[in-house]
Design a protein around this nucleic acid. Structure first.
Lengths: 255, 255
DNA sequence: CGCGCACTTGATAAAAATCAACTTCTGTGG
DNA sequence: CCACAGAAGTTGATTTTTATCAAGTGCGCG
């Protein structure tokens, strides 16, 4: 029934986890900051002043970083690992807004603050984050005016994507939404390998369904069809994109 | 079939349009700026310096302010009228991101810029806008640092709403999405009247369908049911919310 | 090597889009 | 001022899509 398979093919979840207990050493933190959208290229001295304002935290797999409804006073940067942003409705159905990797920011993005988080943040794997309070963040904005402009640009770009295109989804068939979700993850976490673009994130059907605003069953059907056609390959919590171009064709309304 | 009606009842589109040709006089512009999220309460002198950097434009009903794909170099503020932000797909189906009124901002929100607009902006009625280029806007940010913080907060709040809640919709039944869209418009454009909360915006079924990510027919069915139950009343391009509480009950997943 | 969880698959039901015909409102021109 | 034409809205029948419910199956960790 499934596609014929090379018996030698690797079948494990392709994500190196960090082990706990763990502390992000300073060089790692600096690299992460320099990789982030807000603090890139500021120079060692400025980065050092920022780094000293931040605190590190480590999180175990599936541990909650914060939950929707809690007061939002802290801005986070992913240092290592993967963080899932989303909401769990009472009935266990979850919607996933995004999955973040090193250098990406989340939490209280504003300088003064939304009063509460509107979504939850959960570590998908053992992860490490940096955090900074809003007061300290405002100090950073004052010391580095260019950061303010970047924050504005970043937020404007995110807003634009959330309202329209692939991130904020909403439009199109389930097939299109799943394709867009996978392509987005591919850009972020894809690693070229013999099997295609391997997504370095332990992505369950439920998570993918949450991203695509669908159900695990519907996603499974779509994936099965694509496996048969050689567009993707996947197993238990891993996914590889074998034919990105075809996926792009599926994702676009007209293409 | 429809609800019994007082023959005397008003049946016209409840929106006073400005007449063209028209120029926003300076007092109107100042009031609008002071009402906007970014420039509120800056004081007369600062507002004056900002006002002098802005240019006014007037737009006829259904005139395009800009279209998706054009380069994005200008930030707009609605001075008078109503502006629809959305996309038209090739097949004429349109999705509507939002409908804006006086004081609300749109266009190139970033200081440096998205290269192109991702959506179109159209005047729903005869309207007047203020505009400012990105260079001039950056000057304003430098002169008024507090504006930068407000921009960040505004964008963060919008992003949060777009990703989750009512603005960015996506979740729930058509009925829920329509209810949320109407409630949102009610907050913005509602005016208490004998008929309930009258939406001061010429809202067609197609526009409402665009907001709720549905179709005119499905929206019409929902509205018919609600009319029968006395929840809303509506006619050709006008809508009144007669029972806001019940609408809120419909909008929420769990009441 | 076996146990359980994630995934798959099938059958059914519900929701909403689509297609199509018809009604009603509005403003425009005779 | 009335009639008429076109736009806007309503309603019905049908199809498509997708969620839901319910068993299986097999992958991969211990």
């Amino acid at each position: 029934m499934t596609t014929p398979r090379d018996p030698q093919e690797r079948r494990t979840i392709p994500l190196a986890e960090i082990s706990l207990p763990h502390r992000c050493p300073r060089p790692v933190r600096m690299t992460v900051l320099d990789r982030s959208a807000y603090f890139h290229g500021l120079g060692e001295e400025a980065l050092d002043r920022i780094d000293r304002r931040m605190r590190t935290s480590t999180w175990a797999e599936e541990e909650a970083i914060y939950r929707a409804g809690e007061s939002a006073e802290t801005l986070y940067v992913v240092a290592e690992g993967r963080v899932r942003i989303g909401e769990e409705s009472a009935a266990g159905t979850r919607t996933v807004t995004d999955i973040l990797g090193p250098g990406e920011m989340f939490g209280a993005m504003s300088s003064l603050g939304e009063p509460v988080h509107t979504r939850s943040a959960t570590a998908l794997v053992n992860s490490c984050t940096l955090r900074i309070g809003q007061d300290a963040f405002r100090e950073v904005l004052v010391e580095n005016p260019e950061v303010g402009l970047r924050v504005v640009d970043d937020l404007a770009a995110r807003l634009s994507r959330a309202e329209a295109g692939s991130g904020g989804q909403g439009a199109g068939s389930v097939e299109q939404r799943v394709a867009r979700s996978l392509l987005r993850l591919g850009e972020k976490f894809g690693r070229r390998s013999r099997e295609g673009l391997l997504l370095e994130v332990p992505l369950s059907r439920a998570d993918l369904a949450g991203l695509a605003r669908s159900t695990p069953e519907s996603v499974s059907r779509v994936m099965s069809r694509w496996k048969k056609d050689g567009v993707v390959d996947s197993g238990r919590r891993w996914t590889a994109l074998k034919d990105v171009e075809q996926l792009e064709g599926i994702a676009e309304p007209e293409g």
